[in-house]
Simulated assay, not measured.
Amino acid sequence: MSVHFITGANSGIGAAVARLLAARGEDLWLLARDPGRAAALRAAFPGSHTLVADLAVPGDLAAVLELQGLPQQLDSLLHVAGVLEPGAVGQLGTGPWQEICAVNLLAPAELTRLLLPALRARRGHVVFLNSGAGLHAPPGLAAYAASKFALKALAESLRAEEYPHGVRVTSVYPGEVDTPMQAELHARLGIAYDPATCLTVDSVAEVVAGALDLSRDGTVSDLMLRPG
């Protein structure tokens, strides 16, 4: 049985990935922001291991998670959680920049550091759910895009560093996906939202699972998906 650690499993792509892996009978470790979300995960995924930690405070992750107990062996670490705050560079103060970079970049870096021994033990796989904005920065999303560009750099360095240990690293760059975050973004930007023009969360989850299932003779380093 494979063992997977997933962030962002309460909704959207993370929930779809967790559902797919749970349906295969695999062992899930799920990270929740607070006890209420942890309870919801336990109800949705009976038998899963749930941990509570706030990715917006990456400096606390080591103490908080090690107190709860981390897995000793992992087949994959799936960084799906993320936050987004729209705004032009001339509008956003340091607060949104700090939160976005904490959740989207610093927390994945710290969580990866903490779980590398478990990943090395199983020659595991790290997957970063990036974004099309991590390749082409659109106007009005500078902070989000900057965090995702930096996440790309983190993945590339990690891939080279962990190659001798047999740990594979994949970045996934979906375009617009039908998620609550996407709907909220359109509303805040005053743009009409049509879910039919988006990728589904299940399509993205299937791509993530496909990367995990690739035979050991290769690595899918980067995956770009676009709607339709």
Rank of each mutant, 00 (worst) to 15 (best):
L65K: 08
R122L: 06
C101A: 12
Q91N: 01
A32I: 10
I100D: 09
M1C: 02
T179F: 10
A81P: 03
L92F: 04
A18Y: 05
S171Y: 00
V57K: 15
G87W: 05
S215M: 03
V220A: 15
V52D: 08
T179R: 06
T219P: 00
G134L: 04
L135M: 14
F5W: 07
L116R: 13
A23C: 00
P35R: 11
L106D: 14
R24F: 00
A150Q: 12
L51C: 08
L185M: 12
A40G: 11
S48K: 02
R188W: 00
A205H: 05
I13M: 13
T200K: 03
S131K: 05
R168E: 12
D27Q: 15
S215I: 00
G47E: 10
L55S: 05
V103M: 05
L185E: 06
L41I: 10
H186I: 02
T197Y: 00
G36R: 11
H125R: 10
T50L: 03
V89F: 13
V126W: 02
L51S: 06
A196N: 02
L67F: 05
V83C: 14
A160H: 11
Y144E: 05
M1D: 07
A142E: 12
T197F: 00
L189Y: 02
R120P: 05
H49G: 02
Q98F: 02
A187V: 01
G175L: 02
A44G: 15
S2G: 00
A81F: 02
D202L: 01
W97M: 02
N10C: 10
L74Y: 10
P58K: 11
S2E: 11
L106W: 05
D27A: 14
Q182F: 03
L158M: 13
G134K: 10
A43S: 15
L20I: 03
L212G: 04
Q98E: 14
D60F: 02
V3T: 14
Y193E: 08
L158F: 11
F149H: 14
G8L: 09
A109Y: 13
F5A: 07
G87F: 04
A209C: 10
L214H: 11
P227V: 03
T112Q: 04
I6E: 06
V204L: 03
A56N: 09
A88P: 00
T50E: 15
L114Y: 01
G93P: 07
P117V: 07
L185A: 04
L185V: 01
N104Y: 09
L154T: 11
A44I: 04
A143N: 11
Y193Q: 04
G190S: 04
H136Q: 14
S76Y: 03
H165P: 01
F5Q: 04
A187G: 14
A39G: 09
Q98A: 13
H165K: 13
L20D: 12
L55R: 01
G47Y: 05
L106H: 12
A15C: 12
G69S: 09
A40W: 03
K148T: 07
S48C: 14
E206I: 00
A153K: 02
P180R: 07
P164D: 12
A211T: 11
L212P: 03
N104E: 08
P35S: 09
V177G: 04
L74H: 09
E156A: 15
R24I: 00
P71H: 07
V220D: 02
Q73E: 15
A187L: 06
A142D: 12
P138D: 07
E85W: 10
H125K: 06
V83E: 13
D60P: 00
